[in-house]
Every structure is written in C-alpha cells, then in structure tokens.
C-alpha cells in the first residue's frame, strides 16, 4: 500500500494525538452518564416520599402492614410483655447491638421496614424462637424489637424516618 513508509509512524504518541484521544474519551465518558443515570429513581418516584398511617384501630398485640415506597412497613402495637422481653435483653447477646429505646420512639409502637436485611424477603410476624419475626427464606430470626438474633441476616430490621403527627396518626418518610 502506498506511502506508509513516508509518514511518521502513525502510532507515535505526540501531543496532538494524546490530546485528541483524551478529549474524545472525555466525551464518551460524559456521554455515558445520562445512559446510566436514567436508571436512578425518577422525579415522580422521588416525589412519593411520605405517607400517613392511621393507627387508631390497631389494638395491643396487633400489627398492620402498610406500603411505603413499594416496601412493606410493619406497625406493631407491642404488648407490655414484648417490651419487657426486649428491654431486658443484654446488649452483648445481640448481633447488631441497639437499645430498645433506640428502636421505638414510643415503646408500645414499633415501626419497621419489613424487609429482611439478609436478601430482602418479608419476615413473618409473631414467629421464631424470640417471639418476634422469622424470615422463611433463610431462617433469620428477629426479636420483639426487630433485632437480629440468629440466622444469616447481618443487621436489625430498618427503622424508617417517622413522626407522630397525633396520637393516632404516624407520618412515615
């Protein structure tokens, strides 16, 4: 083929080639961002931030499950026995030590995201040997404050941000 001998070696890394290559690579990199970022939560998803839950009809020893951001949230009206059991558990027995008071703003109301911290299944209520929650997927067991006691899950059930708007209405999120 013609002329290849006359030109400088095309692979020669002089400034122009490096600058152009770097510039082009920058363009491709920045151009890829919208293609990735489009998968993040969109504006309509972000807008569905909070819900209000009426808890007036939840009696002692009863629970309700509400949908918050596509996930179940357990709202449990704990019995005195459950609270006592939780408060009296020594912290050194816990995998992820946390005081009962840090788990519930009002001791009788426990509000948790009902998603097992292992791989995301929904634990069953009032089950397992700690009288709390039991995840059927891989046998993670939680106590009456939703703290992990045995099984593969690494953390306690997540407590969402919530506030009591009144004695009977909780705002979650």
């Amino acid at each position: 083929m013609a002329d290849t001998s006359k030109v400088e070696e095309p692979g020669r890394r002089d400034f122009l080639y490096i600058a152009t290559g770097a510039f082009g690579a920058l363009g491709v990199g920045v151009g890829a961002w919208p293609l990735i970022d489009q998968m993040n939560p969109d504006a309509s998803v972000k807008a569905l931030a909070s819900i209000e839950v009426d808890i007036s009809s939840v009696g002692e020893g009863e629970s309700i499950t509400v949908n918050w951001r596509g996930k179940p949230v357990f709202v449990r009206h704990r019995t005195a026995a459950e609270i006592k059991l939780s408060v009296e558990t020594p912290l050194e027995d816990l995998v992820d030590p946390e005081e009962d008071a840090a788990r519930a703003e009002k001791p009788e109301w426990l509000v948790m995201v009902g998603v097992c911290t292992h791989l995301g299944c929904i634990p069953l209520g009032e089950a397992g040997k700690y009288n709390g929650w039991f995840c059927p997927c891989h046998n993670s067991t939680y106590d009456t404050a939703g703290r992990i006691r045995s099984g593969p899950a690494p953390k306690n059930l997540e407590i969402p941000k919530y506030t009591f708007i009144s004695d009977t209405v909780i705002k979650i999120g």
Binding site: V7, F23, G27
Partner: peptide, 21 residues
C-alpha cells in the same frame, strides 16, 4: 462547544496523518 473543539482536533489529526499522502 465541546464537539466543535473535538472536530477541530480531529481535523488536525486527520491532516497530520494524510500530510504526505
């Protein structure tokens, strides 16, 4: 603006390569 600068650079590269052809 970015594309115009890149086009300028690409033009220079292309000319450099074809210089002696």
């Amino acid at each position: 603006l970015f594309l115009i600068i890149l086009a300028g650079l690409m033009y220079a590269v292309k000319r450099r390569i074809w210089e002696n052809v």
